[in-house]
């Protein structure tokens, strides 16, 4: 069945079961592979995308749920976005696998709250796991992005 998805401002027609998982359709059909499978149960956050601007675990949604909503993936965040630039400045990523999800959560946080306190950063990011232990640098990167107008 043809489903229309609006991803990073572009309309895509995908021929899939409407109950297909949004994560796997984004990855394997649209080949936007920056969004990652980590656990498949919403427990790690590696699959985080924006749905109408809200950070959302894409592994917990069907394409049917996402129809008619604006989906943004890591590929849809400009390369010169303050969050991405701060991430590079702090040399944040190690293996890099969970980082697109972390960045999507951070972008959404700063869009809502351009000057978060450290506690607000931790509260917002706490559900996103990182096995390499990049948490200290994620906090620094978000602080840095906030200082440079990370809400853009």
């Amino acid at each position: 069945m043809m489903i229309e998805l609006l991803v990073n401002g572009k309309k895509h027609q995908v021929d899939v079961d409407p109950d297909s998982n949004l994560l796997w359709v984004i990855r394997e059909h649209l080949k936007l592979v920056g969004t990652k499978y980590g656990c498949g149960e919403g427990a790690c956050g590696s699959c985080t995308v924006h749905l109408d601007g809200e950070p959302t675990r894409s592994c917990q949604l069907t394409v049917k749920d996402a129809q008619g909503k604006a989906i943004t993936t890591i590929e849809g965040i400009p390369e010169d976005h303050p969050v991405k630039e701060a991430w590079i400045a702090e040399q944040t990523s190690q293996c890099g696998y969970c980082q697109p999800g972390q960045i999507m959560q951070a972008v959404a946080l700063l869009a809502r709250n351009p000057k978060p306190s450290d506690q607000q950063i931790v509260d917002s990011m706490d559900g996103l796991l990182c096995r390499c232990g990049t948490y200290p640098r994620i906090i620094k990167a978000i602080r840095k992005a906030a200082g440079k107008g990370g809400s853009r």
């Binding site: 990855r27 920056g34 890591i74 390369e79 991405k84 590079i88 040399q91 944040t92 697109p100 960045i103």
Partner: peptide, 19 residues
């Protein structure tokens, strides 16, 4: 020295096995 894989990693570009 800045990591050579950093830019790609913040942009979702590296090809991991699953990609």
């Amino acid at each position: 020295m800045p990591r050579l894989d950093m830019f790609d990693k913040v942009n979702g570009k590296p090809v991991f096995g699953v990609d």
